[in-house]
């Protein structure tokens, strides 16, 4: 099966080549029913892409901030089933691309077919499942995802071999998620020289997919460094920190996004 229907992710990357801002947050955090409001506020504030995290009890790729938000969301009562019901109205309010990000186990328990159907029904454009490796994806998941118009986004890291980056590029149709350094998710103050060399190395490979840099992007400075060598960047933990202390989501999200995009948009 090879369905090449353009979706919102493709459209975004067709008309915007630089300074793309993608924002991650955990569904059901800080409060159970904040999921849809945060998506609306992000769009209004000028985010280009939204990643909604499916909470999981054992998020091994995540640092303390996102771990804590996962735990809080689960304690609040979030489940994948509830998340899909919250997202039923998503496309009445939000037009920018939306990706769901999470670990594979809740997806398996929900049933892969049911999961894909529910994503399509809610207007989800893509998936990031860090513990679904490319080999397993191609063997068991790819056809199902494509049949429901879902783009699977893969991660690469500074340690990913060039041949594997090529393989990932070949299997991707959306963008490639460039993990900025050998680490779990989490805000860092600076982007260091080694990372810039890695961004440039990948850029020089002239991949068919565009790239967004994630992990350690926390503010205007790190965002701008990242977007100089890629098509954009992803902010997660820093946004979770903001949500945690926010008393006015709409206002705080607006100033957060504006502060990051500032001069770069």
């Amino acid at each position: 099966m090879n369905i090449k229907v353009t979706n919102r992710i493709n459209e975004l990357f067709e008309h915007k080549k630089s300074g793309i801002l993608s924002v991650y947050y955990t569904a059901g955090f800080p409060k159970l029913n904040d999921t849809l409001d945060i998506a609306r506020h992000l769009q209004a504030a000028g985010a280009d892409l939204i990643e909604i995290g499916i909470p999981f009890s054992d998020p091994v790729a995540d640092g303390p901030t996102i771990q804590q938000s996962n735990k809080q969301a689960l304690d609040n009562g979030m489940t994948l089933k509830l998340l899909f019901s919250q997202l039923e109205e998503l496309r009445q309010h939000v037009q920018i691309p939306v990706i769901m990000m999470g670990y594979i186990n809740p997806v398996i328990q929900f049933g892969v077919d049911n999961f894909c159907k529910a994503c399509e029904k809610c207007g989800i454009d893509g998936l990031i499942l860090p513990d679904l490796p490319i080999k397993e994806y191609v063997a068991d998941y790819k056809d199902k995802f494509e049949a429901h118009g879902l783009r699977n986004i893969f991660l690469i890291t500074p340690q990913t071999a060039e041949s594997r980056i090529r393989e990932i590029d070949e299997q991707s149709d959306g963008f490639i998620y460039m993990v900025s350094s050998a680490s779990t998710t989490g805000a860092k103050a600076h982007v260091v020289q080694d990372q810039i060399a890695y961004f440039q190395r990948v850029r020089a490979m002239q991949l068919k997919n565009q790239t967004l840099v994630g992990f350690g992007i926390s503010n205007k400075e790190t965002f701008e460094t990242a977007v100089q060598n890629s098509n954009g960047a992803i902010i997660g933990s820093a946004f979770i920190n903001l949500l945690e202390k926010s008393v006015d989501l709409e206002k705080d999200i607006k100033s957060f996004v504006e502060a990051i995009k500032g001069l770069s948009s």
Partner: peptide
């Protein structure tokens, strides 16, 4: 081997 890409190498 259901591991994040960071552990692949």
């Amino acid at each position: 081997a259901f591991i994040p890409e960071m552990l692949h190498p």
